[in-house]
Design a protein around this nucleic acid. Sequence first.
RNA 1: GGCCCCGUGGUCAAGCGGUUAAGACAUCGCCCUUUCACGGCGGAGACAUGGGUUCGAUUCCCGUCGGGGUCACCA
Length: 549
Amino acid sequence: MGYKDLANLIFPDAKEISYYEEKYPERNLQEGAMVTRFAPSPTGFVHIGGLFGATVDRKMARQTGGVFILRIEDTDQKREIENGVQQIIESLKDFDIIPDEGMTGENTDVGEYGPYKQSARKEIYQAYAKSLIEKGLAYPCFATTEELEEMRKKQESLKIRTGYYGKWAKYRNLPAEMAEEKIKNGERFIIRMKSQGDENRKIRHHDLIKGNIDFPENDQDIVIIKSDGLPTYHFAHVVDDHLMRVTHVIRGDEWVSSIPLHLELFKLLGFKAPKYAHTAAIMKEENGSKRKISKRKDPEAAVSYYHEEGIPSEAVVEYLLNIANSNFENWRRENQEKNIEEFKFELSKMSISGAVFDLVKLLDISKNVISKYTAERVYNDSLIWAKRYDSELKELLEADKLYAISIFNIERRNTKPRKDIAKWSDVKNSIIYMYDDKFDRMQEEYAFQKITNKQEIKTILSEYESNYYNQNDDKEVWFNKIKDLSEKLGYAREVKLFKQEPEKYKGHVGDISTVLRVALTKRSNTPDLYEIMQILGKERIKKRFNKFL
RNA sequence: GGCCCCGUGGUCAAGCGGUUAAGACAUCGCCCUUUCACGGCGGAGACAUGGGUUCGAUUCCCGUCGGGGUCACCA
């Protein structure tokens, strides 16, 4: 009994690996084209870090005329949730990330290098595992969980490196006959790689982001096929990225410590290793210390959070690019109107250590992004958001489209447009007083500032309404009339005049304007009052004044 | 604990042996202004630390300290 027989006993039906090598040939792409992939588990959850990676993956593939693949890593059934794949695809789509190749639905895909779901590739992994067993580079291991646990404890008490390696690898040199016997007896086993590495030798890895890193060689006989017949991440990664002809593996830097292992696996299988780019994790600051942003503790870790908040995906992507390439921000400033696609992204410019996620900065970017939108776009996008997350806003917007757009147009067509909406969830609050029945039911108190005397306010309002206001006035005339009213009532018609001789006046034109503003909106801070009054119109202005009186 | 990586203002960051150490967000002040949001101008604020190397170190080397990642039949 030799390795070959053992291999046949374990995987009797596996195909020759030459079959797969021919089935998935080298890609015929232009020089320098990068084949990248995003490879999440089907948890349905897309992490902000995942989106970050996927953005980079797609960017690099696009930029070089390559291919961007979506592969699903479902070798751990525990992680799976129903419709998990579909949800991931949709989340990515929300950010305009549509893969060139790979999964397109729960069970559908496009491309010649599939299947793109690892559970459907079981026989492929087994074929390669078999080839390794045949060469004596992998073997069945019968150690039980308890046995392994015991070994670990012993290693710990001896203060030596833990793990399944060297002389600790109990089944590493088990004769094929004995293995055969155990298998025939129905003993449970898994397949391990037989490492050829030596802990005392160093290898150098060149990472496209991190630069050169030196490690000791791997000497752990890690598991490649689990007892359920599916591969571990390590093995699947190596087989898939080889067979899918991936040229650049861009992944989170929690994987850097596995590099020696992955490199060895590529070598044992006789594959050419891809280039690696390990991206730094996005961090979260919590009472003075940094940690990886976490799915469990931080709502902002989920990409869906930004959707729920109504932050345009464009803004999120811009922010991410900002963290990813520090020169993006300058590029953006110099190329305000250009599409993000035109920005030349460089892996080597990515930062080596993790950035703390800055929501305030994101919101600032978002504010700028939205300020450039037309009123129609603001209307459409906030309506899309409202349909999903805010039925009250939805009703408001749908009740009268043109009216809503006229509100969004206040100070929007200026050369310096308003920047007061950072996310769609801000919209309702910023327009609500423009709707009569909402205005009538607003709980807020009238936010009068300097002038609070009710009698004085009454005088101002009725004077203004009956003797000064005219819907047809242009802005200059309109404002001059407010100045006239101010003067008549003993207020300075210019703020400057008041500042020069404050004792001479009861106040100034700003105080009068504020009274009008507050009576009409209940708020002391609003966009341009002239435009608001234009939209409201004479009758409604009158009604609102009367309501206060 | 072993292995690996990182350490410039509150945050993101330029910088590659000689700089008044950029810029953005945040913060503060002033200006503009009928309020606010903008916009303009200005202020405060940083090279973790100790040794080397060098005519000269933020930059190169070593130690210390601090931070992070990883050590599964999870990815």
